[in-house]
Amino acid sequence: MSIHDIMNFETKRAIKLALLVQIEKVGFERVTVKNLAITANINRGTFYLHYKDKFEVMEDLQQELLNELESYVKNVQPLDAFHSIKIGQLYQPFITVFQFIKEHARAFRIILGEQGSPAFSRRMKKVFSNHILDKISVIREEGLDPEFLQYFEAFLTSAILGVIQEWLRSGDENLNVEELAMIHFRLLRFIGNLASLQK
């Protein structure tokens, strides 16, 4: 990576961090390019070399988080996960997902919050749906029923995201990712028949 590339990367990172600061301070609707530039310690001309407006910054930040999240979620194998919980073992791929979210907790908390982007939660659910639901739907006959699949997707992705949002909202630093992963699957087992997806 050249010096120019490094400088561009650092500037864009500063702008994305500035966006988080401004959302937390005034809410996304009231964020301005002027305040983003001031917060990032750059001039407006420099801002426009990298982004056309605050919406493009938000899209870049969300896509960066979603791409990395997807790289971890795609390693989750639901049947292996449920089997691990049944025998009392932690499931490492899901722990890795939670670890990534914990490392970027501030960004996830702000964007998922009331002052952030309503669309982000839907996009996160889609990541979970694309890589987890597809692996479950072929296991049971109900998974072939479009109506069942629609509601099962809503249930499963909302359950996953709901636990993550509660964790982020509570700011519970005493709850580590391993404990959170165990709570997550205990909840899923308790709520319904997801454990019966195993053969």
Results as ranks from 00 to 15, higher is better:
K199M: 12
L149E: 04
R140M: 10
E24R: 11
R140K: 06
V177T: 09
V26R: 08
M1T: 05
L20V: 08
N8W: 11
I164V: 15
S71I: 13
Q198Y: 03
I23A: 06
L180S: 03
G116W: 10
I38A: 10
L175S: 07
L112D: 02
N176T: 10
E178H: 07
G162S: 14
L49Q: 06
E70K: 02
L20Y: 01
G171T: 04
V97L: 03
R13M: 14
A81W: 08
F82D: 00
L69M: 08
S129W: 13
H50P: 03
V127Q: 00
N67L: 15
L69E: 00
P93Q: 08
K52W: 02
V127C: 02
S170F: 06
F152S: 06
E153F: 13
F98Q: 07
S84M: 02
R189G: 13
K12G: 07
S71A: 13
T96A: 14
K199E: 14
T96M: 12
E10W: 13
I136D: 01
L61M: 05
K135V: 13
K86Y: 12
N8M: 11
L19D: 01
V163D: 00
S196Q: 12
F120I: 08
L175G: 03
N35M: 09
L17F: 13
T96G: 06
N75E: 11
T46K: 08
L133W: 11
V31Q: 01
I111N: 00
R189S: 10
A159C: 05
L17D: 14
R169S: 12
H131P: 14
E153G: 04
K25H: 15
S170W: 04
K102I: 07
R140S: 08
F185V: 07
K74G: 04
L20D: 04
R189T: 12
I95D: 00
F185I: 09
N75Q: 14
V163Y: 12
T157P: 07
L133Q: 05
K199T: 11
L66F: 02
E68V: 14
E173F: 13
V33H: 00
L175M: 09
E29P: 02
E142H: 02
S170E: 14
I139M: 04
E10V: 13
A195P: 11
R106D: 10
L17K: 08
S121Q: 09
P78Q: 06
K125C: 01
F155D: 05
M124R: 02
G27S: 12
L112H: 00
S129F: 15
R44V: 00
M58F: 10
I23M: 10
Y91D: 09
E114S: 11
K126I: 14
E10K: 15
L90I: 04
V138M: 08
N8V: 06
R189N: 11
F190I: 15
K12R: 15
M7S: 13
V26C: 09
Y91S: 02
P93C: 08
G162L: 05
A105Q: 09
T11G: 07
G27P: 11
P146G: 05
L168D: 01
T11M: 12
S121M: 08
Q77I: 10
A18D: 07
L17N: 13
K34V: 02
F120K: 05
S117N: 10
R30H: 14
N75R: 15
F155K: 01
E153T: 11
L112M: 05
E70M: 07
F152T: 05
D145G: 05
